[in-house]
């Protein structure tokens, strides 16, 4: 990679372009806002159902603590849909139409260019929903997260974003080999929806899958535990290292895949 400063300014310019596009479609703000409220409500309803009967619930997690997990889920969902999905979904279309040519012809890192090519800025509404859920949960708990807890949570959310991004890069890379990967993206979105539950609801093999292969625990449960002040440091370190591994693997897959680009059309 050439000078970091150049990439920072490129990132700013790509963000500005997305801002200009967002300003062109002002109605998207209202639609996205309404959708995010609906999506937050959809995320909360199952929790109310589970905790409606006092004898049920998720072992080790009170209603309020589970709400913190949902808050983390909404936060990650906003980042995924606002910053990760738009650019990478566009790549699949670029590969299909052969317009990825223009990205690969540029003297800048192709993975960087496609990843920052588009942001759905109105999805920031999802962050407001997450804040409301956090405030409601901690008000009912009668205590607030410590500074260390918030810091740990910030680090874990960054690691989770990196893992989500890396998984997306691997999925997008599949488009270099098979033309239609829509089903894979739906599967990924459906699996991500499971991150609204504390990882302890899964048992046996599923628990292993959702901790190691698709680390849902790392994405929402661990950040929630950090905010609740009960995360141990080794888990935090392991999560950051795991995120690093995912990122390195995704980079290797991407670099290998672009060699298979056949540039459709013409």
């Amino acid at each position: 990679m050439r000078g970091l400063g150049r990439y920072v300014s490129l990132f700013g310019l790509q963000l500005r372009t997305s801002g200009l596009l967002a300003a062109q479609y002002r109605w998207d703000f209202l639609i996205d806002g309404a959708l995010s409220v609906f999506s937050a409500a959809a995320a909360l309803v199952p929790l109310f159902v589970v905790y409606a009967d006092e004898r049920r619930g998720i072992p080790g997690w009170s209603f309020e603590e589970s709400l913190v997990v949902i808050g983390c889920f909404l936060l990650l969902q906003a980042i995924l849909e606002g910053a990760i999905n738009p650019g990478l979904v566009a790549v699949i279309e670029h590969i299909r139409k052969g317009t990825l040519d223009f990205v690969l012809l540029k003297p800048a890192d192709a993975q960087f260019l496609v990843s920052t090519s588009r942001f759905q800025l109105w999805r920031v509404a999802g962050l407001v929903n997450a804040s409301i859920v956090f405030t409601f949960a901690f008000t009912r708990l009668g205590r607030w997260p410590s500074a260390v807890g918030v810091l740990q949570m910030a680090v874990l959310v960054a690691a989770a974003v990196w893992i989500l991004y890396s998984l997306w890069i691997v999925i997008v890379s599949a488009a270099f080999y098979v033309v239609k990967i829509d089903n894979l993206t739906y599967l990924f979105t459906s699996l991500f929806d499971l991150a609204r539950w504390p990882v302890t609801v899964f048992r046996g093999a599923l628990r292993v899958v959702f901790t190691v292969l698709l680390p849902l625990g790392l994405m929402t449960t661990y950040p929630a535990e950090a905010l609740l002040g009960r995360l141990d440091w080794p888990t935090l370190v392991a999560s950051v290292l795991g995120a690093g591994l995912f990122a390195a693997a995704a980079r290797a897959v991407w670099l290998r895949s672009i060699r298979h680009y056949t540039s459709a059309g013409g």
């Binding site: 150049r6 300014s9 540029k106 800048a108 013409g266």
Partner: peptide, 30 residues
Amino acid sequence: LEKIMLVMGQKQQLLWDLPPAETFELNRAI
């Protein structure tokens, strides 16, 4: 890559919803 360019009459790199000037500026930065 800084020395070359491939222009394809059947494919476009211009951002569809924004004026071409925005694509020019983006390319300048790249």
